[in-house]
Design a protein around this nucleic acid. Sequence first.
DNA 1: TGCGCTGTCGCAACGTGTTGCATCAGGCGA
DNA 2: TCGCCTGATGCAACACGTTGCGACAGCGCA
Lengths: 161, 161
Amino acid sequence: MRAGTLAEPWQSVIGELRRRGLRWTPRRRLVLEVLSEASGHVTGAEIVDRCRRLDAATVPSTVYRTLDVLEELGLVRHGHGADGREEYHVRPTDEHGHLHCEACGGRWELDASEVGEFMAHIERNRGFRVDLSHFTLVGRCPTCGGAPAWGAEAAAWISDR
Amino acid sequence: MRAGTLAEPWQSVIGELRRRGLRWTPRRRLVLEVLSEASGHVTGAEIVDRCRRLDAATVPSTVYRTLDVLEELGLVRHGHGADGREEYHVRPTDEHGHLHCEACGGRWELDASEVGEFMAHIERNRGFRVDLSHFTLVGRCPTCGGAPAWGAEAAAWISDR
DNA sequence: TGCGCTGTCGCAACGTGTTGCATCAGGCGA
DNA sequence: TCGCCTGATGCAACACGTTGCGACAGCGCA
């Protein structure tokens, strides 16, 4: 396996782990290596897969446990896509939410400036602090437009009570 | 099994199925029976479980397929909880979103009046039509309050780049 | 350097949901 | 009433993720 090619800020992870009494191990190094080459969004399965390509002996449970640890360190965040799958965001220094089109599967980022006011509104009215990185809106993009798949037509016949 | 105890509007489901060339079968009746006694939110696993209590021979794949069909008819909608599990809403005539506390697991409904303006804002700016029943905000409720689990502290050490 | 505490790993089993396929049966037309 | 077409079902296998547990090994300390 390659030698110390991890870029900053990944290096600081080692120190941070130690500071918390946690350990720096080959498996964690592997996961970090995969993450460092995958900024953006990756599903859990994808991460496991890439780890396996680097080391065929990789076991899923270890990867997921490592991701939990890294999330606690703030290095990654995870949410769930429209299909409910785990989805990891690497280095969420620029926290953001997502739009997910249920028709074409497309996704777009939603940055803090677009939702900040709404989040503040919810916090004022409900005292509820919204976590932006879990903020995923599902619906239809401009291209797929129109009514959602289940349709107003479907809703109509049932509304007769 | 009990005889024709399904209340309206469940009865109309039979006709609607036929209208679409689909069939009314004992299995579908079973699922509908479970749903009719479970207004609110139920996870897929819960529905399967309740079906099994009524008929031990129930098989998950059939239940999930039936739920898909019922969703197409507009009788149920599904979304994903904060843990990514399937979550069905029965008879979403009163469509709404959800708040989900990541600390205590509590959940609250978010009705259209609270988010309508924001949804309109997203549609104006992005042309994206948000599906309210998939609208789930994850964060911390007033009781669990404060910073989310991953903490500002955690974010701080990484922000050195 | 060597020891020991405790965090980490691999494994196996499980939970939830999906998919492909062969078979069964609802319901329409003759 | 009977037969046929096609949708529905059960089964088995799979995909993704989680959990419990015993064995292993990182790393602090003497």
